[in-house]
Design a protein around this nucleic acid. Structure first.
Lengths: 218, 218
DNA sequence: CGAGCTATTATTGTATACAAACCTGTTGAC
DNA sequence: GTCAACAGGTTTGTATACAATAATAGCTCG
């Protein structure tokens, strides 16, 4: 499936918003961005619409497009929903997961461990994403998997920051072990709790997230 | 907040897709619809994008916009997710709900009962929606409430059809009673189960939903 | 000197014009 | 006779031109 210009522009803009090039409340200038990307305003506006629907931009009629970074409250809310979605995926996956998927899960986990040993945050991050994505898919509900992946992606930058905190990778690993064991055993309740706990922002993770937000604001 | 043309067009198209004017797989002709709405292709294409993002259309590059009605499998998946979202809302609301909201909930329920007595499907439907929306909001998580409301709206037409089945309104009512009792008692687990059961498509409801789909196809 | 109004400017929303890709029907070759 | 290639028309994607609305600055009046 080929892409149109508007697609790639949307992706690039998304990147620019995620990495903090544009801060919350900034207005995106159509004409400036258009010549920057070397296109006309039309595909740019299409990209705006797409980003607005996914929540990254707010389109105020006759005023323009404003970047809309979630504040602390909204972010906690999103993490809470993410935790619940993962918990549901885990519960369903515990009943529906295939042996092949379990093997893949273990494989992803081993790669995670290697990344931890090598202190390679990037590698850990990508294998971690693979780990979770497998669980989404093994829920046996592709609509659920899609929604979970969508929110996962949206929280990506914040999650990534959190992995940089001391000891987090190690703790996360042992939580993964727990999750795999619950899924292997087909224990829906244990999988639910393990995944919810793994994702939920509570205790020390709360302060880490707040610290991340303060850094991002600078 | 005023609307632009594209907004009203998106709403009207949404309506036309929901009410079955356009069937699954139909291609929407830009020029024909443009002159039909009395606008140019530009705002129409904006509307297309919006509907594509919410899943009602599939935009195939260089091919056009095709309406994409969910099939039986996808529909069951969506209802499963809806059930889980409602269950989560219920669990959180059991802990966080205010007395005022409980009173509103009881009020909505009474109106529901009156509608059942009067065999007024439309009234029942609108009060039912109000009932659920209150629970979403009382989860104390506005992001969750928003997502739940979004999916609720998307499933609206199918839910509505189901209410027409014999005895469904009465059963639904007694389930509502159970939900309110659980929330009053602050019993998170009971609220979770009651709401999940209320929304889940299983048993007779499955056949009813399939029958609805067959009718819609004609 | 300040406040309010007006005119100008800038920016968004919409229409139209143009370009590129796709579908289809016909023609020609094997 | 069938398949493939090409031409014409159709349709989408993008650019540009135009219109309408909001921001701004300057001017006038109190």
């Amino acid at each position: 499936m080929e892409k149109r210009r508007a697609d790639t522009i949307a992706e690039q803009l998304e990147e620019l918003i995620f990495d903090g090039t544009y801060a919350d409340g900034d207005r995106l200038d159509e004409v400036r961005l258009a010549e920057q990307f070397g296109v006309s305003r039309t595909p740019l506006r299409e990209a705006f619409q797409r980003l607005a629907l996914s929540g990254l931009l707010e389109l105020i009629p006759r005023r323009g497009a404003f970047v809309r970074q979630p504040g602390p409250v909204e972010l906690l809310e999103m993490f809470e929903v993410m935790a619940e979605l993962e918990a549901v995926c885990g519960r369903l996956a515990a009943l529906r997961i295939s042996d092949a998927a379990l093997a893949e899960l273990r494989d992803a986990n081993e790669h995670c461990q290697q990344a931890v040993a090598a202190r390679d945050v990037d590698a850990y991050y990508s294998e971690n994403e693979r780990f979770h994505r497998i669980i989404y898919q093994q829920s046996g509900n592709s609509f659920l998997a899609q929604e979970a992946a969508k929110l996962h992606k949206r929280l990506q930058p914040y999650r990534r920051q959190q992995l940089r905190f001391r000891g987090r990778m190690g703790q996360s690993m042992s939580e993964h072990e727990q999750i795999v064991r619950a899924l292997e055993a087909g224990d829906a309740e244990a999988a639910t709790d393990a995944l919810r706990n793994h994702v939920a922002v509570q205790g020390e993770k709360f302060h880490q997230l707040m610290a991340t937000l303060k850094n991002a604001a600078e």
